[in-house]
Design a protein around this nucleic acid. Sequence first.
RNA 1: GCGGGGAUUGCCGAGUGGUCAAAGGCGCUGGACUUAGGAUCCAGUCUUUAGUAGUUCGGGAGUUCGACUCUCCCUCCCCGCACCA
Length: 975
Amino acid sequence: MTFLDEIRQIEKKWQKKWQEDQIFVGKIDNSRPKWFITLPYPYASGAFHLGHARTYNLGDVITRFKRQRGNNVLWPMAFHITGTPVLSVSWKIKNKDEKEWQKYRDYVSIYENNKKKIEETVATFEKPENVATYFANKIINDFLGMGFSIDDTKQFTTGDLEYNKFIEWQYGILNEKNLITKGSYPILWCVNDKNAVGEDDIKDGDVSKVEVNEFVGIKFELDNGSFLVAATLRPETIFGATNVWIHPDADYEEMQIDNELWIVSEEAAMKLKEQDHQIDSLRKLKGKELVNQEVVVPITSFKIPIYPATFVDTDHATGVVYSVPAHAPYDYAALADLQRDEETIEEYNLNRDRLGKIKPISLITVKGYGEFPAVELCEKLGVKSQKDREKLEEATQTIYKDEFYSGIMKENTGEFEGLEVEKAKDVVADKLRDNNLAAEIYETSREAFCRCGAQIIVAVLQEQYFLNYGDEKWKETAFKALNSMSIIPEKYRLTFENTFNWLDKRPCVRKRGLGTEFPLTKGEGWIIESLSDSVIYMAFYTVVQIIRENQIKPEQLKPELFDFVFLSKGSIEKVMESTAISEDSINAMKESFEYWYPNDFRHTAITHISNHLSFTIFHHVAIFPEKYWVKAFSLNENLINNGEAMSKSKGNVIPIAHIPEKYSVDLTRLHLASVATADSVLDWREAEVNYAQQRLKRFWEYATSVTSVENKEINLSFPSKILVSSVNSNLKKALDAMENYNVREFILNAFFTNLRSIDDFEKLAEHIPKEETEIVLRKVIEKMILVMSPVIPHLCEELNERMGNKQYISLVEIPDITVSEEDKSYALQAKYLANLQEDIEQVIKLVKSIPKKIHIYINAEWKNKLYDLAKRIFEDEAVNIGKIMVEAKQVSELSNYMKEVSDIAKLMTKNPSIFRIEMISSSLQKRAVDEYKEFLSRIFDGAEIIVHIEDQEVSYDPQNKARKSRPMKPALLLE
RNA sequence: GCGGGGAUUGCCGAGUGGUCAAAGGCGCUGGACUUAGGAUCCAGUCUUUAGUAGUUCGGGAGUUCGACUCUCCCUCCCCGCACCA
């Protein structure tokens, strides 16, 4: 059996045991500090992959660590199913959307081999609840299969009726506190379904995003008093309008709109009906009927003609365009076309003279362009006519950008002169609107179609409800909460602050998707938006189990119950009376909430900062008193696979369900948590996983070789002491790292560095009695498995059991580790010897001959004194030889060596870091070398090792090397 | 554009004021084991040298006794920008 096969069995064995004994179920225990961690509940619309595993794995390592440091831990899990994705999946499955079917066949085949079964399962997804149930089950199993120490007894989904009641309560409070406001709001809309659409519902919506664009519809008055409405993204160019373009062959419509008469294209009329206007169609007309009429330009009051142009798209905005040939490439091209198009001039009987006199009107100065940017660019790109769409698009984009960011309004724009285009745009639009010369018109950013085939337009919803995150007091309190929270890593705090500042009104209800009905508009079909229903649900974990166990019905979950349980408002008698829930149940809920809350730690991926996590803070401060605000957010970056983002199309997605067989759980856990810091992108590379596997295997081999060794106290030899001390200080460093939730650092010290210490020790093993090496190894391994069990819990449980312990190591407390002076000294000695060995090796390499004798000259103790002196006086100032000399002269041990002192001082000026090292005394250096002599001799092919101390025991020094010795750096002579 | 993050030795990546020529991995070179190894283990991997010294951490300037680490400018790269989970 291979190593991986062996540990895979072990992993399954322990997961089963943990489950059977329910060891991770959170229960109230007042004897220990509680610690309530949450990770966002998964959205159950598909299988989870390695990227998710990274986040949850980090959460588990931290959770297990906290648990083993004496905390009473609760880590529950629920599932998110509200919102549109699940619904959209069902819809597509039902409608036999082949792409979606294949996607879900792929998902199901992660868990299922039988083809027939796969088809059957996917077929059930035509019901949204089946999608959610199926994947919720799979995901929790995936998680348990990763050994995550989740309490799975407090599960719920956001579709549960009990949860809906909880959300209703929450929105009731938000409404009472006036944090919900009303207004109109533009959204993408399917004309067939009469419903809002999301990215999922739009054809190729995932490939090319569709956005809502806000146009300014400018009203050009006709002689008869009705308005020809031209839509633009650039209202500031109104001063350069030379004429209006109409598609001569297209259909237009005259209509009564909000007490005015407008003429727009037929398509536009249809769209405007959805944009919060009262509309009565009066008559249809062809574009050509308008040609040659005149209109009045708002603000300037110029009279300009209406001309025909075929580039006009009646399905885009209003189908009416005003021409600004100086700054709009299309307009310039169309004008040029028309001016030389005799046939059209004849056909519409255009006034040649007037047409010929139309010249571009420049109104914006832009860096890098002359008077007429559009003319310039058209010539540069070789635009021949208005049919050169591609070139014209490019030119339009370029000019739009350049003028937007660096354009300045010219003197012919009157009061707007000198304004930057970026600002003028809004100011001009405001002026037009204020004078009733313009209206908002919305259009999609590209032509888009719903999956049902119908066109997608922009509709304006009235009576839309918003969460008013812009509310000053709310924001202020949220900042207060943020400031008192831990953000881990701290560097993400700034992102939160930016998000807070930017947050404003946010629509919180929608007409589609699963979710809780909005309590303020019962019966109107408004659903609470699914990010807005997921912000304080951590509180629900604390009571859901009690609700279920006592068979409390959803309708009993009235607001006054939650008021009492969560906010201590009202009296229990009244709550009992109105809800008919028993006193015990109510008290149990209250006790549980008050015990577990607040949420001490919430860990997730950084993508949630700008929405979910920020909302969580906002809603907590709105609902709960300060003592229940979330205490800490911890974040991690994404995961990529061999340098590339994981994606279905690349076929490089690794599902969590495949991890145990493909790698092994503990191997994956170890590698995920140690290969990158939380705040950097983790690149999953097979070669590196392989390395982790080798190290894990090595650890396993060391560990299993000593599980049956009897643990008894013996006298330790020097190498054993070094091992024990370094492992101890490594573990101490590991625990310190965890104080800051630095998991990578933790594992590097607790595992990889320790393993290396053991490797080093093993090299010396043949000089040590076998019994001693085994006992020492066992002692060390025992400590390691305890500290490492949060990371590789399965292997540690197994080793723990093999060592004869009955208790789950996952529940054994990791004690504080102290590093004694002795430990420190051994660590320094070990380092000293390692450096010494390296130095010798280096010299050997250079001389390219094998020495018979190696003389080691250890420095005289006064040099240590000198280093100490320098350390003291030059803490943060430049090394000054004079000062050293003056100070040294006053120290009796140094005053005899002033010549040498000055030599070393020179060295110190050159390299001020040499004296900042940690040192051991020369006698300790000697002792260490003596202890190590035998081993040194062995690695250097039996060379004789002769130790000297400068000024004391120098029996042989033909090259006067002893003088060159420095603390921690003995001089060498090889012969 | 705004906001955030980043640029490290052949590659991937640690490191955030002094034991830094800079962890670890990969790759490469040599060795061990070997009549096989794409397996495993050991060693080496900027230049130079009896353990020294020199030049390096996107480019430029500055702060400091001292900078890969701090400040400013420049160049390039990545991510987010809302109603979507």
